[in-house]
Simulated assay, not measured.
Amino acid sequence: MLRNVEIISAPSILGLRHTGVEYLADSLLRAGLAKQLHAAVHHVPTLNADYNPQRDPHTQCLNPLLLKDFSLTLGKAVSEAVHFPIVLGGDCSILLGIMPALKAKGNYGLLFLDQHADFYEPIKSTTGEVADMDLAIVTGRGPMLLTNINGLRPYVKDEHVVHLGQRDQEETEKYGSQDIRETAIKCFSLTDIERNGVDQIMTSVQQYIDTLKLDGYWLHFDTDVLSDDINPAVDYRLPGGLSFEQAATIMRRLLHANDIAGMSVTCFNPTLDGDGSIAQGITACIVDCLST
């Protein structure tokens, strides 16, 4: 039996580039996501047409003003959702709309599945893409224009974040990113999962979550956390990753054991999925984890 859900299509690429990620929502909907979930679909207008490939000189980020405006629009849609919202990006910068909306309602945590730490400072980012610094921004690190929307900084505290599946540690060290392992963010890397197994890791995750006593959580699923062997349709590829079954198991256990306010799906690039099979696999994974 499926929970009552509604889908919010929010294909912003303001924190990335025009690579094809803007077609994520359309691709998963064509693969039957709304039909299988019996969900209505709401579309949030993007500002992608105004995308500027040049860094803002004050923040060193791409499109910060556009991102703030889009985030306010997306946050309103999330706040007004009647049923469990599934937000289909776009890139990971959609969290800048989601997390302030939750902060305005109460004290929420973030359960973050991603192959990347997404913890760069703008000056250390080689691109200025907010999609590689979104976790830093929602925890209060970065330019005030983005970290303090509606005076709500930080949108989530470090100790209320659980990061699962990171496998870019070597890259973060190479480029000088801040290290999430040196914060109060609870981290379970891909190496941890491979060494200890999903069941043991999820027991540890749940034990940690049980100590927090929050109003609820947001579940973020960046599809690049999946193995490169089964999902090469992402813009920044790294070897290794989770199987569909592992990802679905992790998300199902999180969804069934906790008060999850909604979930987001990001960074799948359908233009790299020639026959649509990856979109079908991601759709099946989402439907699986939402089944009760």
Rank of each mutant, 00 (worst) to 15 (best):
A10Y: 09
S12F: 04
S12C: 11
I13F: 11
L16A: 15
L16K: 07
R17G: 02
R17T: 13
H18N: 14
H18M: 11
T19K: 10
T19W: 07
T19Q: 10
T19N: 15
G20C: 08
G20A: 06
V21P: 01
E22N: 14
Y23N: 12
Y23P: 01
Y23E: 14
Y23F: 14
S27A: 15
R30W: 01
A31N: 06
L33I: 08
H38W: 03
A39T: 07
A39P: 07
V41C: 07
V41S: 10
H43L: 04
H43F: 02
H43W: 01
H43T: 10
P45Y: 02
N48S: 09
A49F: 08
A49E: 15
D50Y: 12
Y51V: 01
Y51R: 07
N52D: 15
P53I: 11
R55I: 07
R55Q: 13
D56K: 08
T59D: 12
Q60V: 04
P64S: 11
L65C: 04
L65Q: 14
L66N: 03
D69Q: 15
D69Y: 02
F70T: 01
F70L: 02
F70M: 03
S71C: 07
L72D: 02
L72K: 15
T73D: 09
G75E: 09
G75F: 05
A77R: 02
S79Y: 03
E80T: 04
A81D: 07
H83P: 00
F84R: 05
F84C: 09
P85G: 10
